[in-house]
Structure formats: structure tokens, C-alpha cells
């Protein structure tokens, strides 16, 4: 299977005053297309840093990142924005929806940035609204929805531009276990049906079980990587 993303000798350091924190140390790995992969590990192990680097919202201190065989870590800010818009989808722990826009507008926003036609926008948004089960809430603003519903909106927004890769940072952390599982079921379904590569971080064992592959991070290095056999 073709690889979608490759980290080559990636390190990330944070400078806090005079001290330097090595968040990631010489990471080297590749992720095949269509993966449903979980990055796990204790707090502070570098999960979020890794996802931020994967999603081009942070820059590595050292090393190269490749997307579909093309180096992307050296792209300009504008080129990175264009790549994020066209190929990446983001799901954040605290949903990060635009509070002043309703559900439809929130989901539609990336399509407007991508200059998609109005008819196509409507078609794609309504399809995703149906997939995430929010048809009855399309006129609602984010603060009128529950946490689970908000995360479903965030999933729909992440997928609306038909990205190759969806990055989710602790997508269930702010949700109760039942809602969290339902969110992962939606993500799993999308991975299967839409063939979208999904990489998510978690430190929750219940959540990990949904992943087809797990990368264990500890102190900024990959401790292990293993495939999970279907139950």
C-alpha cells in the first residue's frame, strides 16, 4: 500500500527560557494510505506535537516530512495553507467550531475557502450532515449542541473537502464514554467507506481498541508500533 505520510529523522524542541524540552527525538516512520491509526502514550509523551507536525500546524526543529512522497516541511506558509485545505482535515479535542456560525456554515467554511461551487457545497454539506446524524440541527449554533454533537460537526467539517488525511487530537477527551465511542464509530465508518486515512491520539484504552494500528510514544520516541487484529 502507498504511504501517505513519512517522518524522516524528525525532532521537535521547545525552548522554555534557558531550558530546552525535547518533545520528539529523531522520529522515523511512515503511515500507509487508508490507515486508522492511533498514537498513544502518557501525557507529555509528544502525541499532540506529533499530530501538529503531521498536520503542518507546527514546524519541526529538525528532519523532513513527506506527504504522498513529496517533501512538505519546507513549503511556504501559503503553500502549507493550501495543502491543509485540500488534503488535511482536523478534529480538535475541544471541537474548535466557529461560534458565530451555524452547523451548516461551520461545515461549509472549508469549501468556501476552496472556492467550491454553491451547488456542490450544498450537496457535500448535506451528505455529511446525514452521515454524522445532525439533519435536525442544521440551523443550530455550536453552543446549542451537546459535546458529542459538536464533535460530529467537527468531523463533518474535517471531511467536507474530501481530504486524504484526517488528524484528530484526543477527539473523545471531552466526551463521556458512550458519546466518545459513538464518535469513534463514525470515524471508523468513514475510514472504511470513504477510504480516508485517520490518525488520532488518545490515552484512553477504550478508545485505542478502535484503531487498526497503534504507535506507542514515550518521552518523545516511538516505543512500539503494532497492528491490531480485528476481533
Amino acid at each position: 500500500m502507498d504511504e501517505i505520510i513519512r517522518f524522516k529523522n524528525i525532532s521537535k524542541d521547545y525552548h522554555l527560557g534557558k531550558s530546552v524540552i525535547h518533545a520528539l527525538k529523531d522520529i522515523d516512520f511512515a503511515i500507509p494510505q487508508g490507515s486508522f491509526l492511533s498514537i498513544v502514550g502518557p501525557s507529555g509523551c509528544g502525541k499532540t506535537t506529533m499530530l501538529n507536525l503531521l498536520g503542518l500546524i507546527d514546524k519541526p526543529s529538525q528532519g523532513e516530512i513527506y506527504f504522498k512522497g513529496r517533501e512538505i516541511s519546507n513549503l511556504s506558509d501559503n503553500q502549507q495553507s493550501e495543502l491543509r485545505l485540500a488534503s488535511f482535515g482536523f478534529i480538535f479535542q475541544s471541537f474548535n467550531l466557529i461560534p458565530v456560525l451555524n452547523i451548516v456554515d461551520n461545515i461549509e467554511f472549508p469549501l468556501i475557502l476552496a472556492k467550491t461551487s454553491k451547488a456542490e457545497r450544498k450537496k457535500r454539506v448535506m451528505r455529511l450532515v446525514d452521515i454524522v446524524g445532525l439533519r435536525d440541527f442544521i440551523d443550530h449554533k455550536p453552543d446549542e449542541l451537546s459535546g458529542g454533537q459538536r464533535q460530529r460537526v467537527a468531523i463533518a467539517r474535517a471531511l467536507v473537502n474530501e481530504p486524504s488525511l484526517v488528524i484528530a487530537d484526543e477527539p473523545t477527551a471531552n466526551l463521556d464514554s458512550i458519546t466518545g465511542e459513538s464518535i469513534l464509530e463514525v470515524m471508523e465508518q468513514l475510514n472504511k467507506e470513504e477510504k480516508v486515512t485517520i490518525i488520532f491520539s488518545t490515552h484512553n484504552l477504550q478508545v485505542m481498541k478502535y484503531a487498526k494500528e497503534i504507535i506507542h510514544l514515550k518521552d518523545g520516541v516511538i516505543e512500539s508500533r503494532k497492528k491490531v487484529s480485528a476481533p
Partner: peptide, 16 residues
């Protein structure tokens, strides 16, 4: 600021 961060993450350019 966080809202802007989200918009930038999903593809909004600096000039936009």
C-alpha cells in the same frame, strides 16, 4: 485567537 487558529489550521491563509 483560538478561533483564528482553527481557521488557519483548516486552510485560511494569513492574508485572508
Amino acid at each position: 485567537v483560538r478561533e483564528f487558529g482553527t481557521l488557519r489550521a483548516i486552510g485560511l491563509k494569513k492574508r485572508q
